[in-house]
């Protein structure tokens, strides 16, 4: 089973990388781009012995403890179809 984890900076945290990318996109002819926030994407293979619910719980725990830093980041866990 394949699970996707998205880690993104919290809305309240300044994201200078995202801002720089947004400015670059604006200057290369995309004035319609109003905001960019940069995060991380993890593709995780989990044993099929686990139910999707169990796997999601495991990944939530891992995301909380390792993949994200809850001080500045939030995460989303999705089962890949």
């Amino acid at each position: 089973m394949r699970i996707h984890v998205y880690v993104t900076p919290k809305k309240t945290v300044l994201d200078p990388q995202g801002q720089t990318i947004r400015r670059a996109l604006n200057s290369m002819g995309h004035p319609e781009i109003e905001n960019v926030r940069q995060g991380k994407f993890f593709e995780v293979e989990v044993s099929d012995k686990l139910s999707p619910e169990q796997a999601t719980e495991v990944l939530k725990k891992i995301s909380e403890e390792v993949l994200s830093n809850p001080v500045i980041e939030e995460y989303r866990v999705e089962i890949a179809r």
């Binding site: 945290v13 300044l14 200078p16 720089t20 830093n69 500045i72």
Partner: peptide, 8 residues
């Protein structure tokens, strides 16, 4: 936490 410098 220590994050990326303001000026990158």
């Amino acid at each position: 936490v220590l994050v990326r410098n303001r000026g990158l």
